[in-house]
Structure formats: C-alpha cells, structure tokens
C-alpha cells in the first residue's frame, strides 16, 4: 500500500463521533461567523429525513435556504420563534414532548434551573437536543458533548475570483463524546465529519 502523504497522516480521520447520535444533549458555542448556526442545522439534517425536527430561532435570523442546502428537509422543519427566556423554556419543553430532534439557540438570562429541567427532559424522552447559548455556557454536567467552534476556513475565493464554496471549521470537542478529554480538530459541514491531528488521537487512546 502506498504511504499516505504526511499531512493526511497527521490529520487522519478520528471517525465521526456524531454519526448515529440520535439522542443526548450537545452544546455548540462560538462567536457569530464561526459556523454555529450551520452546525446546528447540520445536526437536524439527518433526522429531518424521517421525522419532524425543530429549530428554535431566538435571533429571528436563521435562513431556511441555508437549512435546505445543509441537507434539511424543509417539509419537516418547524422554525420556532421564542426570544424571551420564559417563552424559550416553555417552547423547548413542549417541543421535547413531541419532536425527536431540536436545535435551539439559547437566549440570554435563561435560568440554570430551566436549562437543567430542559436537559433532563431531553434525556428522559431520548431526544436529540443541540443547544447554542448566545452568551453564557450551559452549566457543566448537563451535556453529552461540547463543541467549541473557533474559526471557519473558506475556500473557493482567490484574488477576487470565484465564490465561497466549502468550509472547514476549527473546533474543540469535549465531554463524554470526546472520552473525557478536549480534542482539537476540524469539522466539515454539513457532513459533521471530524478530523483530529494524530497526536491528539494518541492522547485520547492513552487516557
């Protein structure tokens, strides 16, 4: 077998920690432009092929066209507008009673008790809940995994020619999905494929 190029060896795929994840609570953080919205929509793409899903839109700015391009079946996606913390808690609670997969922006000043109740309900109902807090982190211990998006690398544009085509997001995955350590790597959207450098993978196995 021909040897792999050095770069590919270093960034060999660690697998897809998100493949087949149909239940649990994920947290996705990052500043605007780092890819948080696209990541949330990517988590809805697979479940929307067979069941209803919901996106809780706190900012009133999510694009359905982007959702469609990221693989969501718009026929099965409900967009729920709940900007106030109290409304948000009720809306997400109701959604978890009836919708298998929910991606939700989390408005500012949602009480920790509400978040604990929401996460507990998601676990009890075996739902997939992906949270993107707009300010503070979700209290520790509530989520299965935390994906911190750091920067987006775009391709397709050079010297004023072309147009934006593909992106890779530099991110850090922690929590149970990362086996208890923090793994830095690259996330490809909308496939949610995850690549980590070889040294990080070795560290994860050693742990």
């Amino acid at each position: 077998m021909a040897p792999l190029p050095a770069a590919s060896q270093r960034e060999r795929s660690q697998g897809e920690p998100f493949r087949g994840v149909s239940a649990g609570v994920m947290e996705v953080t990052g500043r605007p432009g780092s890819g948080v919205t696209s990541t949330l929509l990517s988590f809805l793409a697979a479940p929307s092929q067979s069941s209803p899903v919901a996106y809780v839109d706190v900012r009133g700015a999510v694009s359905p066209v982007a959702a469609m391009e990221l693989g969501c079946d718009l026929e099965r996606v409900a967009f729920v507008n709940a900007p106030e913390p109290e409304q948000w808690g009720r809306a997400v609670g109701y959604l978890l009673d009836g919708v298998p997969a929910v991606a939700a922006e989390v408005p500012r000043r949602v009480p920790a008790a509400t978040l604990r109740a929401i996460c507990a309900r998601a676990r009890a109902r075996a739902r997939l809940l992906v949270l993107a807090p707009l300010d503070d982190r979700i209290p520790s211990g509530l989520t299965t995994g935390h994906l911190a998006l750091e920067a987006t690398s775009w391709s397709g544009v050079t010297g004023g020619r072309g147009h934006l085509t593909e992106r890779r997001v530099r991110a850090a995955l922690s929590g149970k999905l990362a086996r208890g350590i923090t793994m830095e790597g690259w996330l490809t959207l909308p496939s949610l494929e995850w690549e980590v450098p070889e040294e990080t993978r070795v560290l994860a196995v050693a742990r």
Partner: peptide, 15 residues
C-alpha cells in the same frame, strides 16, 4: 406552543 406564544411562534418555510 402557538396557544402559549401566539400563532406566529411556529412557522415553516417554503422556498
């Protein structure tokens, strides 16, 4: 949700 937050709180998108 619509009963609690109003009719515009749940929408679907059509291209």
């Amino acid at each position: 949700i619509q009963a609690a937050l109003g009719p515009d709180s749940v929408r679907r998108a059509v291209l």
